[in-house]
Design a protein around this nucleic acid. Structure first.
Lengths: 162, 162
DNA sequence: CCTAGTCTTTCCACCGTGGAATCATTCCAG
DNA sequence: CTGGAATGATTCCACGGTGGAAAGACTAGG
């Protein structure tokens, strides 16, 4: 590895990291009867809950790039496992609002606990200033990836549009 | 977002990035008749080729956390699609060495081209010194994730052991 | 009403797993 | 050197899980 600051090297590292993450998910997912998509769904619902607006099956379908039927089946799985509730919206009764249960949070914690255990010491070695820089970098790279997936040409967009 | 240097925030960003990447892969995969595992396999074979040692079905099976039959089926798909060749090893004729064809490299390029188009301008905004810092950070985080997936307790291991 | 939007159901194809068996090759103990 | 493990790759089978396409049900709003 001659030049650790080259763009190609960074791209390769980003790819390597996602591969390792998929590996981790598949390894620990089978222990908890959860698969990749289910975890992504929980993450997306949680994320939406934190930012205020409610998550619906339609939004989730677009967020995860899943077809509508696959999303329904996904929600059936999560609901029968007790991780999510479907609540018909009172303002528009076509819509269904998704709510996470406490057991979902427990599963999330249980799944990420071993990963966090390894990640924390690696991250805490960096001072706050460098962590902020990495955070900024990751934010922009995630936005760029999202833009690429959406086929957009705006590589600097940070705001979700849907 | 109150504190962009907190560990939790960084972990969340890492997770967000992998979600966006999965999204991109699934969007691209459907266009090219390739699935996530197939692309990961190509990446793993390519990676092994760059680092010198040859990739074999057994190694690939462990790398991708796939069962032996699933790996054979995966290689059948890739071979019939013309992306990989199976060559019996000359040193140990039980083993099969995997070689990528030119069309696999084309697919790889086609896959990363739109992503790189968005990623490059975002990355190039950072000076070399900061990029090197991010590269170091990502290397350690990937190693930590790998260690977590392997169930190891050594969070700082950088060398693959298999 | 009638069109559009949201969610769901039904049916089907593909991917991955598990277990067990096959076959060739290599390693090793005696 | 030989006979018996061990290793690496592949195949077959039945099974479950995931995702897509088409079609239907329901509600909102002009």
């Amino acid at each position: 590895m001659p030049d650790t600051s080259s763009v190609d090297h960074l791209v390769r590292l980003l790819r390597l990291f996602t591969m390792e993450t998929e590996r981790y998910i598949s390894a620990f997912g089978t222990d908890n009867e959860m698969h990749r998509t289910d975890l992504n769904a929980l993450g997306a619902i949680m994320e939406a809950g934190q930012s205020g607006d409610a998550m619906t099956p339609g939004r989730l379908s677009r967020r995860l790039q899943l077809s509508a039927p696959a999303t329904s089946a996904l929600l059936d799985r999560l609901e029968s496992a007790g991780h999510v509730r479907r609540v018909r919206s009172t303002v528009d009764r076509r819509r269904v609002d998704l709510e996470l249960t406490d057991t979902a949070l427990d599963v999330g914690r249980a799944l990420f606990a071993p990963l966090a255990k390894h990640l924390r010491p690696a991250i805490e070695r960096y001072p706050a200033e460098q962590r902020a820089l990495v955070a900024e970098f990751l934010t922009e790279v995630a936005a760029a990836t999202r833009a690429a997936a959406d086929g957009s040409t705006d590589a600097t967009a940070t705001k979700p549009r849907k």
